[in-house]
Every structure is written in structure tokens, then in C-alpha cells.
């Protein structure tokens, strides 16, 4: 982990009066697979577009491969592969024509063998026009076009959106292939936590435009825990566990979602509480993410009463 391929300094973006991204500070080292997570409207796509120079920041700055994002040189753009959200391509073009079009811009970097292999793997024909492809097939073409340019940095904005599980698995296989090549960096945003879990080294979570998590996947998985305790009486007023995100209780059981709380801290806290015992409940990444990004006091139907 040495060279930084992507870096931002207080990157901020307003759309009118709406704050979309608030002082984002991010450093992505070379060779990592970075998963960018966040709810709808959290600012993931805004961040990616700012990084690639498609939006102008309100304040702050960012660099890609050492070049200022608002003035990316053709050479830098040639080293960055980009898969847009929704995979927009020219509908009238056949895949073969699209290949030739893309190839013309990367005469030295174009990996024909890889492109052919990917088309073969995805069972796509060069004669097919883009408008006749399904969403999944278009995603495959998009990924093939991006990867065949042998990018040093691959940026993907929600690449598996709307794809079925089989296509998603194929997509991830392609990503893994790239990752296995030394020195390649991948930044991708996604809503599918299982995909992120499968491939990412590090994750960043943006919530309402603010970076709330920037850590390894392991750190994320181990830091967010659900603690359940069976009460023998009412908990004293002001009782709380360190690092509490949420707390819910029913007649006899109280649950806490805690972040970064150690076992020792839990022991110490519960030693003075009227509880029979406590246990840590396993959470999958999706649950962890939901709890991490849900604001406290959020009313939920058919769920436990939220303890203020």
C-alpha cells in the first residue's frame, strides 16, 4: 500500500441548496478493491462523477492518478476504465462496431484477446445491436469494453444494478480476473452487499453526503455488533453501551447495535445492569449496513419499540 491512485480533499458538492456531498476525504491506494456503499441519494454517484471530472465541486478538490479531476488529461483518462450506472451505450451500434469504436481510442492498450474471451464467455455475438440486448447483456458488454482497455483504475457505478444472480456472478468473476492482475485498482459502488463482501478489500460508507466509514471489510464486519440482553428489571436511566447506534426493547429483552465496542467494555457495562446475561448475535453484512445507515429514532413498522 504505497501509491495513492484516488484522493479527495474536503470534496463538497451542492445541487442548488441541497448538499449532496459534504467534505469527503478519501484516499484509495493502488491495488485495492474499494467498495463505495450508501443508501439511495447518499452521494455515491456524485462522488464518482466528481472524481472523474463530470461534475464541478462546490469546494474541495480531488485527484485521480496524480491529476486534478477537473482537468483530467487524455493520458489519465486512458488509464481509467469507467462503467456508468445503467450501462448507457449507443443503441444503434452493433457490438462489433462498438468494439472498433472503443479500440480506436486505445490502440496500445486494447486487449483483443480478453474482449473476445469475455464475449465468448457471455455468449454475445458481434452482430447484435445494443438496443436488442437485455440489461444484463448490456452490462456485460459494458464491462468487457471497460476491461479490454487494460485500465490501471476501474471505476464502476452500481454495475450490477438490475442484474439477476447469474449475471451478477459472471460480472464478479470478470472483476476478480482484473483484480488478480497486479497493480490494478477497482472502485465500485453497489447496493448488493453480498457482492461487496465477495470482492472488496476496503469499504467506504457515505451517509447523507458524509463519509461515515472508511475501513477494511474486516474492520467493518467486526466493529458492528448486535448485543442482546435479557432484563431482570428496568434498566437504570441513562444506561447505555459505549458506541451505541440503536437500542430496542420489548417486554423482557433489550437489543443494542454497537459500533467498535470491545468485549471488555460490554462486560463492564453489563456488570452493573439488571440483566441475566448478554450475547452477541451474528449479523450479516446487509443487516450491519442497514443498522449503520439507519438514523436513530427511525420509525419502523412491525418492529420493536425504539428506546430513546
Amino acid at each position: 500500500m504505497g501509491e495513492i491512485v484516488l484522493q479527495t480533499w474536503d470534496l463538497t458538492k451542492y445541487y442548488g441548496r441541497h448538499l449532496a456531498l459534504d467534505h469527503l476525504n478519501l484516499k484509495i491506494p493502488k491495488g485495492t478493491v474499494y467498495g463505495l456503499l450508501g443508501r439511495n441519494g447518499s452521494g455515491k454517484t456524485t462522488a464518482i462523477k466528481l472524481l472523474l471530472g463530470f461534475l464541478r465541486p462546490t469546494c474541495g478538490s480531488s485527484e485521480v492518478l496524480g491529476c486534478d479531476s477537473s482537468d483530467l488529461t487524455p493520458e489519465i483518462r486512458g488509464r481509467v476504465g469507467y462503467v456508468c450506472e445503467g450501462h448507457p451505450l449507443y443503441k444503434w451500434m452493433p457490438i462489433g462496431t462498438l468494439e472498433n469504436f472503443q479500440k480506436a481510442f486505445y490502440p496500445d492498450r486494447w486487449d483483443k484477446h480478453l474482449f473476445d474471451e469475455m464475449l465468448d464467455y457471455f455468449t454475445l455475438s458481434r452482430k447484435q445491436r445494443i438496443r436488442s440486448l437485455s440489461n444484463g447483456q448490456r452490462a456485460q458488454v459494458s464491462l468487457a469494453l471497460a476491461m479490454a482497455t487494460s485500465p490501471d483504475l476501474l471505476v464502476m457505478d452500481d454495475p450490477t444494478l438490475g442484474l439477476d444472480v447469474v449475471i451478477r456472478r459472471q460480472f464478479l468473476q470478470g472483476m476478480i480476473h482484473l483484480i488478480q492482475q497486479k497493480g490494478k485498482t477497482v472502485l465500485f459502488s453497489s447496493h448488493i452487499l453480498s457482492d461487496v463482501e465477495r470482492v472488496a478489500d476496503r469499504v467506504a460508507v457515505i451517509d447523507k453526503g458524509v463519509l461515515r466509514a472508511d475501513c477494511t471489510l474486516e474492520q467493518f464486519r467486526t466493529s458492528i455488533r448486535k448485543v442482546r440482553a435479557e432484563r431482570t428489571g428496568s434498566l437504570p436511566a441513562g444506561f447505555d453501551l459505549p458506541g451505541t447506534l440503536h437500542c430496542r426493547q420489548d417486554d423482557s429483552v433489550t437489543e443494542w447495535i454497537v459500533v467498535g465496542t470491545t468485549d471488555e467494555q460490554l462486560e463492564q457495562a453489563f456488570s452493573q445492569a439488571p440483566v441475566k446475561g448478554f450475547s452477541c448475535v451474528a449479523m450479516n453484512m446487509e443487516d450491519q449496513f442497514i443498522e449503520f445507515t439507519t438514523p436513530s429514532g427511525n420509525r419502523r413498522l412491525f418492529e420493536w419499540e425504539e428506546r430513546p
Binding site: K27, P29, A213, T216, L245, V259
Partner: peptide, 18 residues
């Protein structure tokens, strides 16, 4: 004064790579 910087929360998990 510049634009306000968001306040970090105790539950944030920000551990930059570098």
C-alpha cells in the same frame, strides 16, 4: 468562514488506508 465541516460521530468507522 468556510463551509461548515460535518461533525464526526463516535460511531464513525473512519480509518484511512494511508
Amino acid at each position: 468562514s468556510p463551509l461548515p465541516v460535518p461533525q464526526p460521530r463516535p460511531t464513525d468507522l473512519v480509518f484511512p488506508a494511508v
